[in-house]
């Protein structure tokens, strides 16, 4: 029994995980910015714009990190 999980499983798992991760970063970033706009400061629409930008950067960074881990195996 090999110590590492089934290669097909592992590869598919790694690939499928990137997409939702990017989407979730965008949602969280945009949501935080929107929340800051509406509930904390009356700065609409700038908070949401900044939040979406940060979320986009975070999502791309996460995807890049996932791809890097993939290369090691």
């Amino acid at each position: 029994m090999p110590s590492s999980p089934d290669p097909m499983f592992a590869g598919l798992g790694q690939a499928l995980r990137v997409g939702t991760q990017m989407l979730a970063s965008l949602i969280v970033g945009g949501g935080l910015g929107w929340g800051a706009d509406v509930y904390l400061f009356a700065t609409a629409p700038w908070g949401m714009a900044a939040g979406l930008t940060l979320g986009l950067i975070a999502g791309i960074r996460g995807a890049r990190r996932a791809a890097q881990q993939w290369q090691w195996k």
């Binding site: 995980r17 939702t20 991760q21 949602i27 939040g51 940060l54």
Partner: peptide, 21 residues
């Protein structure tokens, strides 16, 4: 720091939404 906070908070969201969706 804000970028990393967002990517940290995105972890449970993506975990939950992926399985559910």
């Amino acid at each position: 720091i804000p970028i990393e906070i967002i990517s940290q908070l995105a972890r449970p969201v993506s975990l939950a939404v992926r399985l559910f969706a």
